[in-house]
Simulated scan of single mutants.
Amino acid sequence: MANLFGLRGKVAVVTGGSRGIGYMIAAGLVVNGVKVYITARKASACDDAAAELSEFGECISLPADLASAEGLDTFVREIAEREPAIDILINNAGAAWGAPLGEFPDIGFDKVMNINVKAPFMLTQALLPRLEARATAADPARVVMIGSIDGIRVPIGDNYSYSAAKAGIHMLARHLGAHVVGKHITVNSIAPGPFESKMMEYLLDDDASRQMVVDQVPRQRIGTAEDIAGTVIFLTSRAGAFTTGAVIPVDGGISTIRMG
């Protein structure tokens, strides 16, 4: 029981780890003794984030565009050259698009679905040999998909492709989880509510709109780094070894609000 949430010595990959929720997760893992590889499309941002996190532990920057076949292949090859096994994969990188109904463009669906659903699937598939390498019945490898509360409840805005993609990633986690459980790999998803992130800065940087967001959260606040990192630590430690195929809202109670 004393080591129930221990992670020291494990190796993790966190996509979209240079900012927002991905950075919060990477920080939580690094501080708890995990060797963390972060990736992001912007090399300078990825390098800067890894340098900051390296003050607290081991964090390595491997910039890549995982939405492209070439970028994904290069990233997987670099990981394979460095690590014989991966214990934790956090599929966090994502994109959003908003446009009024009747004006929503093709690219607004293609880009969001490619980054939010296809890329996590292809990366997980490519890393399966590394995830299996050290996995055991007592200590399985862990895959965590970062979905969204907008994939559970009907959003207020016009982010049609985003909500569809996040609902898709929740089901993808369940579907993958069912197929790899026999390989000693668990797959779960987290559905965050409002957190400080690039996607939400247009709302949270303005005092009035920030308060509007807070007013919609039963817990009456924005999520913190501890909130999201704590859930990831649960899922990736011994504490979460018997949990797979789950969708866990980390939303301050938004998913519990009754309509009408």
Results as ranks from 00 to 15, higher is better:
G147Q: 01
D207R: 05
L128A: 12
D158A: 14
I185N: 01
L172R: 04
G168K: 04
I228V: 15
I115M: 12
E226Y: 03
M199A: 08
G230K: 09
A178H: 13
L176A: 06
V181F: 09
T136K: 07
Y202K: 08
D110M: 02
S148A: 14
H179T: 14
A133E: 09
K198N: 15
D207F: 00
M122L: 15
I190E: 09
L204Q: 04
E201P: 00
G193E: 06
R134K: 15
P129Y: 10
N159L: 01
P194H: 11
L172N: 01
A137F: 04
K183N: 15
T244L: 06
G182R: 15
D227N: 10
F109Y: 10
L131Q: 11
I185M: 07
S197P: 09
E196Q: 13
M113S: 04
K198P: 02
R153N: 14
E103V: 00
P194N: 02
A167N: 06
F104V: 10
I233S: 02
P129M: 08
T124C: 14
G177P: 12
H184K: 04
I115T: 14
Q216G: 04
A135M: 04
A133K: 09
M212N: 04
L131D: 09
K198L: 14
R153K: 14
G177L: 11
D106M: 03
H175S: 15
I185Y: 08
I156Y: 09
D206R: 15
D110E: 08
P105A: 04
Y162M: 02
H175N: 15
L203P: 00
Y202C: 04
A119Y: 12
L176S: 06
A239I: 00
G193L: 05
Q220V: 01
R153H: 00
I190Y: 12
T244F: 10
S197E: 07
Q220E: 04
M200Y: 00
R221A: 06
F109Q: 02
D150W: 08
H175Q: 14
G193P: 04
S161M: 00
M145A: 08
K183C: 00
R134W: 06
A229Y: 09
I233K: 09
Q211V: 08
D215Q: 03
I233Y: 06
P140G: 13
I233D: 03
R221D: 06
Y202L: 07
